[in-house]
Design a protein around this nucleic acid. Structure first.
Ligand SMILES: [Mn+2]
Ligand SMILES: [Mn+2]
Ligand SMILES: [Zn+2]
Ligand SMILES: [Zn+2]
Lengths: 155, 155
DNA sequence: TTATATATTGAGACCCATTATCAATATCAA
DNA sequence: TTGATATTGATAATGGGTCTCAATATATAA
């Protein structure tokens, strides 16, 4: 075990929640830890599911009415880069979803009522990797959305 | 075989190319067959792969410099509704791709150079249907994009 | 602590793909 | 040919997202 292994070890032990990871990410990239960034992450983590910037802005205003919309966009981008958040674009609407420590899943999307159902299918994931291997692609992420009518709307 | 089966049969026989389908779609929806719409479809079909509105506009100008950009957007939407075209949104760029009489495929997308590789995997398609069946979803379409580094860019 | 370099912020201007408006024109069925 | 109505292109408007910039906050070294 070499010195940077010790460091990695130390990091892993302490990286048991999103705030730690975010702070660590900021440090590693020579970015600064600010109350705005912390607050945005805190509020975001209190929200469930697929969150729009507008949702987030509304929820944050009571705690800090001065926070600017640009800072929201900037911070969400950082959270994505830090691997904590993923961005969706269902039905032409941008939403953000917690990613870290949450089981990966894909989405069924109803094109009538916009309801989404989350699922995961290990074999699909496996074959996705196979396809990438065949094409010598280094798979980093994927997007899979199954679009149709939900059980309510298909009636 | 009942009378509407005859009709269906008749339609299928005559729907052997995109123009016929488009004309039929227009008729069925009380929309009008115009030179602009026909030209847009014709030029689009002459183009390969993933086409942007800008590409299409450039290619059309020589044949009809008066055609408006709004008509392009409007017509592409009709072609999608007619089932002839599908819209993509890779790397935040909107493109259109021929759909009818072309084998279905999904995409590998390089996030460095934007190269796309087309593939299809019958088992993935099968499991997608299974997932939908389990959730009583009526699957109409899907989007699957595998994102990463292509063989060139991963070096 | 203080000083310094530099990263961050919020306001508002800006961008740009797409859509809405509207008066003139084209289509099509009668 | 006519008349109802769908379509068109020019252009204005929309809206999510980004950029700019001067004021401020943070981190680090002394
Ligand atoms: Mn989800
Ligand atoms: Mn393709
Ligand atoms: Zn539904
Ligand atoms: Zn590449």
């Amino acid at each position: 075990m070499q010195s940077n292994d010790y460091e990695n070890c130390f990091q892993i032990i302490n990286m048991n929640n999103e705030l730690d990871i975010f702070v660590d990410y900021l440090k590693q990239h020579n970015l600064r830890c600010t109350p705005q960034r912390n607050l945005i992450l805190k509020i975001f983590l209190e929200m469930e599911g697929h969150v729009t910037v507008e949702d987030l802005h509304k929820k944050i205003r009571p705690e800090d009415p001065t926070i600017g919309i640009a800072t929201l966009y900037r911070t969400m981008k950082l959270l994505i880069d830090a691997g904590l958040v993923e961005m969706h674009n269902f039905n032409d609407k941008t939403t953000y979803e917690r990613l870290y420590m949450v089981k990966h899943h894909d989405h069924l999307i109803c094109q009538i009522c916009n309801k989404t159902v989350e699922f995961e299918h290990p074999l699909i994931e496996k074959y996705q990797q196979e396809v990438c291997d065949q094409h010598e692609f280094d798979l980093k992420s994927h997007r899979m959305e199954l679009i149709g009518f939900c059980n309510e709307c298909k009636k």
